[in-house]
C-alpha cells in the first residue's frame, strides 16, 4: 500500500470514527448518570442533519443554523426524558418493568424517523458542504480531504477535552458522577437528581446534533440512517467500556480506522470485521479497553 493510500484511508477512517465517537459519547453520558441507553441517539443525529438542511434551505447562514440545531436537539433531549422516559419509569414501580426505557427510547427513535419521513420524504437528501460553496477537497501530500472531515475530527477531539474538563473539574460534572454512583446519596447531599438526569439527556442530544450537522455533508442523509450510527455508537462505547471520554475516543478512532482499512483489504466483509473485532475484545475484556479499576479514567 502506498503512503498516499494509507493517508487517505487514515483520514476517511478518522472522520467516520469521529462521528461514531460523538454518537458514543452521547450514549455514554446518558448511561453514566441513569444506567440507561438512548436507542434513539442515531435518529437524533439524523434529525439534526435534516434540520440543518431545512434551515439552510430556508436561507439561514451556517453560523446561525449550527447553534439553533444544537439548541433544538437539546430541547428534544429534555422532551425525551421528561415526556417519555420518566413517566414510564414511574409506571415501572407499579409493575411496568424496570426496562421500559428500552422500549421508550427505541419508540422515540421510531417517532422521530416517521416525523422525518413525513416532513422530508423517504428519499436520500443532498447535504451541501458547510464551509465552502463547492464540494472540493483540500489537497496535501497527495491526499484529498473535505473540510467537513477535518472539522468532524477536530470537533470530536475538542468535545472529548471539554467533556473531560466538565466531568472531572466542574461542580456539575461531579454531581453527575455522584448521581451515577448513588442517586439516593446524591439527593441527600443536596444534588438535584432530576435536573442532572435532564441535563445528561439534553447533553446527549446536543452531541447528536453536533455529529448530525457535521456528518450530513460526508454521509448519505435519509430518515432511516440513524440505526447504523446507534449500533456502531454502541459498539464504540462498549470498546471504551462506557467508562470515560478518552477511552471512548480511542474506541471510536480504532473502530473508524478498522472499518476503513478492513474495507480496503477485504470489502466483502469490510463492515463485519470491525464488529467481530469488538465482540472478540469484549470476550477478552468485558469492561472494554479501560478495565473496571480505571473506570473513572483518572
Amino acid at each position: 500500500m502506498s503512503w498516499a493510500n494509507f493517508l487517505q484511508l487514515l483520514v476517511s477512517g478518522l472522520a467516520m470514527g469521529a462521528i461514531y465517537t460523538l454518537t458514543a459519547k452521547g450514549l455514554f453520558i446518558a448511561h453514566l448518570a441513569t444506567n440507561r441507553l438512548n436507542f434513539a441517539q442515531g435518529d437524533f443525529l439524523m434529525i439534526a442533519a435534516l434540520l440543518t438542511l431545512a434551515l439552510r434551505g430556508a436561507g439561514l447562514p451556517v453560523v446561525v443554523v449550527i447553534p439553533l440545531v444544537v439548541a433544538l436537539l437539546g430541547l428534544g433531549g429534555w422532551l425525551l426524558e421528561r415526556g417519555f422516559i420518566r413517566p414510564l419509569d414511574r409506571l415501572g414501580f407499579r409493575g411496568g418493568g424496570e426496562y421500559s426505557w428500552i422500549l421508550t427510547t427505541a419508540g422515540a427513535g421510531l417517532i422521530v424517523q416517521n416525523v422525518a419521513e413525513l416532513a422530508w420524504g423517504k428519499s436520500g437528501q443532498y447535504s451541501p458542504p458547510l464551509f465552502s460553496g463547492t464540494n472540493e477537497p483540500v489537497r496535501f501530500l497527495g491526499v484529498g480531504v473535505y473540510p467537513e472531515q477535518l472539522a468532524v475530527i477536530a470537533v470530536s477531539f475538542a468535545v472529548v477535552a471539554a467533556f473531560y474538563y466538565f466531568l472531572f473539574r466542574t461542580h456539575w460534572g461531579k454531581s453527575i458522577y455522584a448521581v451515577a454512583f448513588n442517586p439516593d446519596a446524591a439527593l441527600l447531599l443536596g444534588i438535584d437528581v432530576r435536573r442532572m438526569v435532564i441535563l445528561v439527556f439534553a447533553l446527549a442530544s446536543m452531541l447528536a446534533a453536533v455529529s448530525g450537522v457535521l456528518a450530513g455533508p460526508i454521509v448519505s442523509v435519509y430518515p432511516q440512517m440513524g440505526l447504523v450510527f446507534t449500533v456502531k455508537g454502541l459498539a464504540v462505547a462498549a470498546v471504551g467500556g462506557f467508562s470515560n471520554p478518552v477511552a471512548i475516543l480511542v474506541g471510536g478512532v480504532l473502530f473508524g480506522l478498522a472499518e476503513s482499512f478492513s474495507n480496503y483489504f477485504n470489502s466483502q466483509f469490510g463492515d463485519l470485521l470491525p464488529l467481530l473485532g469488538v465482540l472478540a475484545l469484549l470476550i477478552v475484556r468485558p469492561a472494554g479497553l479501560v478495565g473496571a479499576r480505571k473506570a473513572t479514567g483518572r
Partner: peptide, 17 residues
C-alpha cells in the same frame, strides 16, 4: 471487484482499489 454492505456510508477504500 469490490463489495460493500447495504448500510455503508463511505466507499473510499473500494474506490482506491
Amino acid at each position: 471487484v469490490e463489495a460493500a454492505a447495504p448500510g455503508v456510508n463511505d466507499l473510499t477504500p473500494q474506490m482506491l482499489k
